[in-house]
Design a protein around this nucleic acid. Sequence first.
DNA 1: AATGAATGAGAATTCATTCAT
DNA 2: GATGAATGAATTCTCATTCAT
Lengths: 211, 211, 211, 211
Amino acid sequence: MPRAAATKPRKEPTQARAQATVEAILAATKTVLVKDGYEAASTNRVAEVAGVSIGSLYQYFPSKAALLAELIQRHMSRMFEVLATTAQQGETSSIEEAARTVIRAVFAAHRVNPKLHRVLIEQMARLGTLEALETFEAQTQELIEQFLLSHRAELRPKNVKVAARVAVLSVRGVTLWTLLRSPEQLGDEEFIDEITDMVTRYLVEARPRRR
Amino acid sequence: MPRAAATKPRKEPTQARAQATVEAILAATKTVLVKDGYEAASTNRVAEVAGVSIGSLYQYFPSKAALLAELIQRHMSRMFEVLATTAQQGETSSIEEAARTVIRAVFAAHRVNPKLHRVLIEQMARLGTLEALETFEAQTQELIEQFLLSHRAELRPKNVKVAARVAVLSVRGVTLWTLLRSPEQLGDEEFIDEITDMVTRYLVEARPRRR
Amino acid sequence: MPRAAATKPRKEPTQARAQATVEAILAATKTVLVKDGYEAASTNRVAEVAGVSIGSLYQYFPSKAALLAELIQRHMSRMFEVLATTAQQGETSSIEEAARTVIRAVFAAHRVNPKLHRVLIEQMARLGTLEALETFEAQTQELIEQFLLSHRAELRPKNVKVAARVAVLSVRGVTLWTLLRSPEQLGDEEFIDEITDMVTRYLVEARPRRR
Amino acid sequence: MPRAAATKPRKEPTQARAQATVEAILAATKTVLVKDGYEAASTNRVAEVAGVSIGSLYQYFPSKAALLAELIQRHMSRMFEVLATTAQQGETSSIEEAARTVIRAVFAAHRVNPKLHRVLIEQMARLGTLEALETFEAQTQELIEQFLLSHRAELRPKNVKVAARVAVLSVRGVTLWTLLRSPEQLGDEEFIDEITDMVTRYLVEARPRRR
DNA sequence: AATGAATGAGAATTCATTCAT
DNA sequence: GATGAATGAATTCTCATTCAT
């Protein structure tokens, strides 16, 4: 197995043709990843599926890991957008309602392409410290903290930072583990309600009246 | 790279010497896994570290995956024992106390060799449907369900099955994600308390008075 | 081009079969080097010619460079033996006679497989600091110094060390450059005599009477 | 890797801009060669360092070898000029004085950019029969022959052709081997004197009185 | 004249696995 | 039971070169 791997994209494509090549490569990576899994996703195979020469692939991605990194990066951004959008929508509603909206959105996002999600998560674990990941987690933390701060009146735990951390880690942990172990539950409304319930009971003083 | 292979141990070692060989191989696998990661953990390397010929390794493990599977299997068993023991200890205490004991024990178990844990989790994700894993999850589910049934008086949710599933998935999800993303929190008492708090509030009617 | 290159043999073959494999690989390396030159001498090609799998090649040589290094090493040893043997033979004769014997022997040695010699020299230059080379040069220096010391009566230059260095560098330089630029002269008796003459006139006081 | 190719420059740049491009490419080649060695000196890298597109490089040099060839060519010319100039200066002095001047100049020339020199020599060896090289050697031979002819009175060997060949091969061999093996000696006055001494003793009848 | 995107043959190297001894 | 030599498909990645723009 050759050389250690840079994960930064090698060069920014400027011409439209190049841009198309890059997109084709990324799309092919997803396809292959989903169809054959990470181990079988050789760079040659990706290039072939992308209808691009292996040389072109390496023109834009200095290593196989860079391909993964870019995919994870984009995935993260989209995830964060989902979070940010729904959190913003919940700005004026109760913590419970906001939690429900966010959790529902996150579960929905994971239902889109669960197999791809799975592989990306495995690779996140494998790649370990990935800058994109750190950034995303920090941003998420910050976002939820801000949200909780603006709902302070309703909030039970004294320490907002800790509350945010627990909430973020919990929801993320449950989501991922559900994705990995029982993905069919990702669409189970009752399950979503229960998770929402759990988080809400942790975050707000008054017991929610539902159930 | 030759085709994937069976994951069942090839033969049960009967002689003491053979038993020692098997243990040496498994120990070496752990060592190599922790030191070099999965990618670098070649069977040849494992055999070398175990001080055993590659031929001997294949005498007892029909494939690299079998090595992993055995390790995961044992890991699971130990985990389940921790759960079973602590759950049993909590049989007579409140849900809250039992939850605290269990969560504390699980976190403690993950602190023992976090790097090995990490690798095993990654591999669980990668190997996907692993019988040992299914069995373990089912057993855990069953165990918690029984526990909750025997504490029905205290239990808030109507549906015990659902409550158990939420509790199991949550704790497991949080534990794993904590291990992967911020392993240093595995020993943070405040964090453990908060998680306990969250799960308890979900499971029992009366709000716990602490914090 | 993959990983930087260790040049030490990977393992010493102990079984006879393995020994044969190693020899076959080295022989094939020579063949391919001579027939196709260094650039075309891929490890796959060498293995093929050796009638050995590429895996076996890498079992004994951790890199392409290691193959070269071993060949150069052996070449050096043989060269040094030629030197040592002829120098020893000349122990009782005059410097001139000894010089003639040595130079003749060295030229003869370079006539044996000039193409292989060429390639090895190129590679010595390319590999730069190669331990085997350093050792060989040092040993040669020492040998010639000892020889000159034992012929001190006849020796003109005051500084034996310098004299040895000049003699060694000259003969070696001339030999190599002759090999590279006009290999046909390697067998030219007149040319050999002239080189001998030059070195002798430098080393001894009395002008030799020949020519 | 595509087939080997012609080594003649593809076209003579006529415009000033084109001339500048060619010079930039050659300068970049030197830089890259010295910094990273031949193996790493890819045409793409050279073009990048030259601040020129790879297409432009191939506009002027039909192959990587052509780049090398041009560099070697220029190097040779400069070397020959050094020789011609110093030989001419020595026209009126003794063989010894002329030899000293020439050898000193040649050594000095090799001290200028030894790393580049090294690489060029390696490549000379690799490229084998290079027209520029043949021409240069022939010219050098001719030059020294003429010089010796014009100092016939002082000359010892009967055969001028042979004497010239020995002298040229010796000095060149020693120079190159010194460059390759102990470049620090390129500036050692004592060493230069000794080489001069050796060559002079070979060429002239009367023993020089120095040292 | 210049650009730079695209090419793809081919190189080095790894590693799970087999099987003769 | 144990050994370890041998295997070879497969993988990642490079780089000289072309050619449409």
